[in-house]
Amino acid sequence: MSSRINRPAPVEALELSDPELMRQLATGQLGALGALYDRYQAPLRRFLARATQDAHDVDDLAHATFLSAARCAARYDGRASCRPWLIGIAAQLLRRRRRASSRFVAVLAAFKGTLLLEADPRPALQARSDVEKALGGLSEPKRITLLMAEVEGLSCEEISQALAIPIGTVWTRLHAARRELRQALAARHAGGGEP
């Protein structure tokens, strides 16, 4: 569950360590935010796109994540990479967003993502892999927890803090998410791929 190597960032952004960047950001320096964006926008957007299954929302969520990060930069814990921290902020925003639109999400969840995906004309979605489609069938809390753990490499403690849920709930969600994902994948393979 180690975090992966980040994409190469512009030369300027490479000059400062993440903690240094966060210190600058805490003093309100615009350049630091730019550097942070250059460094982490790609993984953050990928996380958000997958977590939400909704490409339309990703820009605003990424935007809000970076702005929140800027606001609470002074509280950064100083670890070498702030990617998990950013992902944690993004997850918190997703949680709030989900509360705000819980009824809408409930309708989507009732379709288990399948109907939505089939109806979606976007080629990017149609070309998605089986695992991506299966991921779309998970409830958002499970999907987010699974992505945070398996893709972003956050520990269960970190996830529990970011989502403000007991660690036991993290474990339960991870277990349920894996089980559902495997069942969905098994069903796809058994049914010849497409549902």
Binding site: M1, R4, R46, F47, R50, R128, S129, V131, E132, L135, L146, L147, E150, V151, R178, L181, R182
Partner: peptide, 9 residues
């Protein structure tokens, strides 16, 4: 499963 999730993203 984890590898597949990572590479799919």
């Amino acid at each position: 499963l984890a590898d597949e999730l990572r590479s799919a993203g």
